[in-house]
Amino acid sequence: MRFLVVDALAGVQAFARQLLQTHGFAADDILCCADPEAALARGLAFKPHFLVTDWFAKAPLTGPQLFQRLRQAQPALQLSLLSFDVTPEHQAEARALGAHFLLKKPFTADQLKAEMTRSLEALARQSPGLHGQVRDTMRTSRPTPRPVLPLIPPQPVVKPGDRVRYQGAVHVAQHVVHRQGETVVQLKGMTGFVPVEKVQPA
Rank of each mutant, 00 (worst) to 15 (best):
G132F: 06
S119T: 13
A16I: 03
V134Y: 12
A57W: 03
D7N: 12
D28N: 15
V148T: 15
G24W: 03
T87L: 09
L70E: 01
P160S: 06
Q180N: 15
Q200F: 08
Q126I: 03
V184K: 00
F84N: 12
R71W: 02
P147R: 05
L82D: 03
D136H: 10
A59N: 07
P195H: 03
Q186M: 12
A173C: 10
G11R: 11
T62P: 14
H175I: 04
K105Y: 09
R135H: 13
W55C: 02
P128V: 06
F84M: 08
P201C: 05
P88L: 07
Q126H: 09
V52M: 14
Q180F: 12
P106V: 10
L20Y: 09
A57V: 14
V157F: 01
Q200P: 00
A14D: 14
H90T: 09
L19D: 02
K105W: 10
Q18W: 09
E121S: 10
G132E: 11
A169C: 08
H100I: 01
M1S: 14
V164D: 00
E182S: 15
L103P: 07
R95S: 11
Q200G: 05
A96Q: 15
C33W: 02
L82F: 13
S141L: 01
L151T: 13
A59K: 05
P160Q: 05
V170A: 12
C32E: 11
G63I: 01
A94Q: 01
D7Q: 10
M116F: 06
P48V: 07
R118N: 14
G11Y: 08
V199L: 13
A109L: 05
W55G: 04
P143C: 13
E93M: 14
D136I: 01
T191E: 15
A26Y: 04
P64I: 02
P201L: 10
D7L: 07
V157E: 05
P201I: 04
S80T: 05
A57I: 14
T108E: 11
V52T: 04
P75L: 12
V6W: 03
T183Y: 00
V134D: 03
D162E: 11
V158R: 00
T191V: 13
R146F: 06
K47G: 01
F15S: 02
P150Y: 04
K198M: 14
W55R: 01
G24T: 06
H178T: 14
V52N: 00
Q91M: 13
D35P: 00
R95W: 08
P106E: 12
P195K: 05
Q13P: 01
A202N: 07
L31H: 08
V158T: 05
L112F: 11
D162W: 05
P156L: 02
D35R: 14
L61Q: 03
E182T: 15
H90F: 12
L123G: 04
D136E: 15
V196S: 10
A73Y: 04
P106D: 08
L70W: 09
V194K: 00
L20E: 10
E121T: 13
H23T: 03
L77G: 04
V52D: 01
V177T: 12
A169P: 00
G168P: 09
L9Q: 14
Q13S: 12
V148Q: 14
L81P: 10
V86D: 03
G192W: 06
V176K: 00
D29Y: 06
F193E: 02
G43K: 04
V170C: 07
F3Y: 09
Q21T: 11
